[in-house]
Amino acid sequence: MRPLLAIENLTVSFDETRVLHGVDFSIGKGEALGLVGESGSGKSVTWLAALGLLPRSAKVAGRVLLDGQNILGAPEGALDHVRGRRVAMIFQDPASALNPVLTIRRQLSETLALHRGLSGRSLQAECKRLLDLVGIPDAERRLSAYPHEFSGGQNQRIMIAMALSGNPDLLIADEPTTALDVTIQAQILELLGRVRRETGMAMVLISHDLGVVSENCDRVAVMYAGRVVEKARAGELFDDPCHPYSNGLIGALPPLDGERRRLTAIGGTVPDPRNMPAGCAFAPRCALETAACKAVPPLLVPVGPGRDVACHVVAAQRQMHVGQAAE
């Protein structure tokens, strides 16, 4: 079946510095994909590039297929029909993502008028319905308020209402709970889950929080230094991480049950994008590093059903297993 959206070999450079080195993944209709990785691994840039939201100085190449049609580099007019209507996006810090001098009504009705041609009474009714849907009490009155009159969690709810106003097929949630209190985080994720169940919308959840991703996503893609290094079903990744980086990320998580163990940190730091290692970007921090790792960047190769990993060592081991199992 054709995926809802597929990103193929997406690369992004700023001022001759490549920050995204050929990213590939796809999202099916109604699917929830988690995108994890450290800050600067290219999670957000991937989506900003896909929707043409990066500054003009950024050089973007590759393909972004929405229902099989490439939207990368499409004219602005065409992209305006994709953004908000087919693919909506919510951001990390809701307080700064909303315009401080416009009322919530103005900001909500903008998309409703644009994508659904609503006006007058039906527009008002829909604004109110959306605020009710995302759980803002006293919606009628609150529509005339400004973003600074709401809490961070409420602002994120409003962002979600705005994102839903175009009835999108895909919602990109870029660290939607990072700037919020833990209790509010849970509420927002619960809201996103409920909305998804009700609308059947697909979602990409960008997060550096593995716990959040494992609970809310079907599949996970792990990114490191501008590349996807592992793709797996959420459960699989946690039970049996393949890539040494995924392994490290999960080792750094405290276990919720069982014996207490020492948490392991990944030594070293993320490489500077201006000074990337010639081979695998993770090699300098990796315990399994070999001569091949230093020389050639590994490609994503399948090591099981729906499972890909970009690691010379692990891929060789696993493919052997796959081979043995097949025999």
């Binding site: 939201l53 953004r83 908000g84 909506a88 315009n99 903008e110 962002m159």
Partner: peptide, 19 residues
């Protein structure tokens, strides 16, 4: 950030600037 939000909503650039 709110300028990026407006663009991400599908608001045409001219309207992003004026509104």
């Amino acid at each position: 950030h709110y300028i990026r939000t407006a663009s991400a909503k599908g608001v045409p650039w001219r309207a992003v600037v004026t509104n």
